[in-house]
Computed example of a mutant assay.
Amino acid sequence: MFTATYWDERYGSADRVWSGNPNPHLVTVASDLTPGTALDVGSGEGADAIWLARQGWQVTGVDISEVALRRAAEAAGPDLADQLTWQQADIFTWAPEKAAYDLVAAHFVHLPWEDLQALHRRLADAVKPGGTILIVGHHPSDIEAIQRPAHVAVLMNTAEQLATTLDADEWEIEATNPGRPFTDPDGNEVTLHDAVVRAVKRG
């Protein structure tokens, strides 16, 4: 599940994989910020990056899948072309430019813990002083609420665990695990929880 081939096949298996709506945590956080430069990691079909661009941000969307990136560029259309840059990258080895972004966001990028920590450190380095990093993942408690693939379930972390990657002397950190309503495939109403880390770099 960590290869370009896997994700190209996943995106190529359907006309659309995700909802096309921006992540609500991103909307909440970015709505409080002055638009500047943003990095969306694991950008998929581009909903978050496109929403940011429409709010006036200059956005780089990064994903491992060329299929997803092509679909995102098509969804954005020519009107936003000057505000969006799409980049294919393997996030196990890729590193963004340091201190280049006012906002760095990574939503539901689930990797083995050591690899995830390494990625988050590189993303933290990419944030300008005074900038914001937003990390959102699935909370481990979701395993009890809805069936998820076993290979995803073992990669879940709490917000408190995710926040340990950031140095509290360098960041103002807010770690929360908010719940949200969800209808499972059988039509049952359940509550899922997201692990959300929002942090502002000091300086």
Rank of each mutant, 00 (worst) to 15 (best):
A89N: 09
D169T: 13
D125C: 09
A118F: 03
H120V: 08
A145G: 03
S65E: 07
T164W: 04
Q88P: 09
D125V: 05
T85S: 15
T165S: 02
T85V: 14
P140D: 12
I135R: 06
Q147N: 12
P78Q: 10
E74K: 12
L69T: 03
L134A: 07
D82K: 14
Q147L: 11
D102P: 06
A118W: 00
E74W: 06
A124E: 10
P149M: 08
L162W: 04
V127R: 13
E74V: 13
G131H: 12
K128Q: 13
M156A: 03
I146H: 11
A126F: 10
P78C: 07
G187C: 00
A89W: 10
V104P: 07
K98F: 00
G179C: 10
V154G: 00
E174G: 08
I133M: 12
A145H: 14
S141L: 12
F108K: 02
D125F: 05
T132H: 15
L119T: 00
Q161S: 13
H139Y: 13
E160D: 14
V109M: 02
E189F: 03
K98C: 05
E144N: 13
A81I: 11
G77N: 12
P185G: 03
G131S: 12
T132E: 12
V152N: 12
V127N: 13
F182R: 05
L84K: 06
N188V: 05
L84H: 05
E114Y: 02
W113D: 09
P181R: 04
F182V: 02
A72R: 01
K98E: 15
A150D: 15
A99T: 15
L103T: 01
A106D: 01
V109S: 00
A76F: 01
A153Y: 07
N157K: 13
A150K: 14
A106Y: 00
S141M: 09
M156H: 05
D102L: 02
E114M: 11
T165L: 01
F108A: 02
G131R: 10
A100H: 02
A145M: 14
A72P: 02
T85F: 05
Q87A: 11
A73I: 05
K98L: 08
V67L: 00
A105F: 03
V136F: 06
L111Q: 02
S65G: 06
K98P: 10
E144G: 07
G130T: 13
V109I: 09
I91E: 05
T132A: 10
L111M: 03
R122V: 07
V109K: 01
A126R: 08
G131T: 09
V104E: 03
A72W: 06
